[in-house]
Design a protein around this nucleic acid. Structure first.
Lengths: 339, 339
DNA sequence: AATTCTTGCTTCATCGATTGAGCACGCATG
DNA sequence: CATGCGTGCTCAATCGATGAAGCAAGAATT
């Protein structure tokens, strides 16, 4: 009864002894299928009470080892430094818990090697399913998992060999570019090509967003200036130095910009402020991603907010459907009014 | 050799059979202490090669079940929606991995019940140690863990029964308030009391920050206006409605404000923009917490950035020292120049 | 030649929970 | 009275990895 600095944890064997019964009865009672195992309500109650009293906690390691499914669901995510990934992770945890799954998450710092290490670690922990969010090489991750018989779903960036849930990048970029072009015309009375900055020239999202960017220009009868498409990576420093180099090359900077993520916007804004190039004339901005403080930066910024709740609902729908083919579900993002 | 859609994962028994040896030899080789167990280099190499070929992955559930320490380290964190907690989590993962520990993280959405559930789940997974970040009831968490013989360290908010690592809230708030008072005097030529908004009136950090706020006022010879201390909670909506109510009560709004977290600032800024109360005269702001976009909001905002790297180094130092008493380590935050 | 040592393994119990198989008892039915 | 059946449990194998203890064969020592 008096349990002071106990090191040994209470197990079902301890409870069995205390209750004068067998471990298997205790197990049956505590994992809820005691009716199926024809344990009397009286004994069930007694065991439940004892478990409570003793502060019994199931040893998941032992439980998972024995069961066929672990009910652990993994997610790898590039970073936690922006609202988009932050809300993905929060939503993921919430939906996983709703379904009785235990979520484990690892951030990969956008490092391809860490991405694979993280996937391997999750496999070691017997995840039933792995969500690869914004992975640099989703197919390699999928391959690793497939070899262990574990399903994967890609999120944010699609893969070629597993189901993917992504934003409608083309549609979002099209609408965002339209708005920035319109703002430029309203503000400056001229139709000039915009700058595109941020993202990797190789990733699917960036390609699709550039396509939307081009289509909006075409629609407006504006020719895209190819020297203004700077897919320099997402990091703030990279966006900042891309801007600096651009300014060195040209005297006439664009009136408006499409910035591919808040992370890149961080670098772009820093440059705008430090360089003083736009001191007299604020550039019209569009940002693919949402952040509350960016929304307060002024009325010259349009934002696209990816629909994280719907994206994660789609992810879990795929998991529950058992689908495994390389389908791509596109979720329309929300274009927000700023100011 | 040909392993197509295998469902069964390779185990040390499979490898043992393939290598014509025993499972225990395989185990010894793969977990690195084959020299101690006097396995020949020849056999070790053979087993290693086979493991590679077969894509063997250790079953951590089985391994942890057998071992005394799990090498799993848990963290509970309130939310992922701001840079402070985001960087805490990133840093935690990095430092844990450096030390060969497997980090698992759960966000509690600031819900006290979820906080305890999360802690219980982590105990079930046999964490060796649990970091309670910004917990509403760190002592209750500690109690749960202690009953299972698991150490805890509090981060961000201190507890009374386990070691804690927190920011120097009083010092940071003192300096921040000084700066905002100075900015007000410079800008408006008057010494008037500031507004304090955000945070819970019961949590240690908020209390300490209010104390720093008061001390800075005293230093400057300004009397604190008690009706201007609004510890209404952290959520943006709460801060926003606190501002609204304040404006309804008084005609003369304060020239400067101390905002207790970026999360609260979100609501404050929203109110400032929507209400139009400060349309003519921008208020001088101070924010306890840092965000890159807030830094760009203008030159009227001072920020305190908590020193996350040092805080987490301190957490791991405590873990490694084995200390278990209720010591409080205070890490000085960094007061950032804005603009 | 008899002994001890060293090397290189194998055997087996163990961690805690789960679950198919089976046992004992009481009651009903033929 | 024999048989069948429902109830309420227990037994024992199992999941995969680990490591103490032990064993066999050859080398070294006396």
């Amino acid at each position: 009864m008096t349990r002071t600095t106990q090191t040994k944890r209470t197990t079902i064997y301890d409870l069995a002894e205390l209750a004068g019964t067998s471990a298997s009865a205790v197990s049956a009672v505590l994992n809820g299928n005691w009716k199926k195992r024809r344990i009397s309500a009286r004994l069930a109650e007694k065991i439940t009470r004892l478990a409570e009293e003793q502060g019994y906690a199931l040893n998941m390691q032992a439980s998972v080892l024995r069961r066929d499914r672990s009910k652990i669901i993994g997610m790898i995510v590039p970073k936690y430094d922006n609202r988009y990934f932050g809300s993905i992770v929060e939503q993921f945890e919430a939906l996983a818990r709703e379904r009785g799954l235990f979520p484990i998450i690892t951030c990969t710092m956008r490092d391809p090697a860490l991405e694979l290490d993280a996937a391997r670690a999750m496999l070691s922990y017997q995840v039933d399913c792995l969500i690869a969010t914004g992975a640099t090489d989703p197919d390699r991750v999928m391959e690793l998992c497939a070899a262990a018989g574990v399903r994967t779903v890609n999120l944010d960036l699609p893969g070629a060999r597993a189901p993917s849930v992504i934003s409608d990048n083309h549609g979002g970029a099209l609408e965002l570019t339209r708005r920035v072009l319109a703002n430029c015309e309203k503000e400056y009375g001229e139709k000039t090509p915009l700058l595109f900055v941020g993202g990797r020239g190789t990733d699917h999202n960036t390609l699709e967003r550039v396509r939307g960017f081009r289509d909006a220009h075409a629609e407006a009868g504006v020719t895209v200036d190819e020297t203004l498409v700077l897919t320099c990576g997402y990091a703030p420093e990279k966006a900042e130095s891309a801007m600096r180099q651009l300014a060195e090359r040209t005297g006439d900077l664009p009136r408006g910009m499409f910035v591919n993520s808040t992370i890149s916007l961080e670098g772009v804004m820093r440059w705008i402020r430090r360089s003083g190039h736009y001191a007299d004339r604020v550039p019209q901005l569009g940002c693919f991603d949402w952040d509350p403080f960016v929304a307060m930066l002024g009325d010259h910024i349009e934002m696209v907010r990816q629909d994280v709740p719907r994206m994660l609902e789609a992810v879990f729908a795929i998991i529950e459907s058992g689908a495994t083919g390389p389908t791509v579900v596109q979720i329309p993002p929300i274009v927000e009014k700023t100011g």
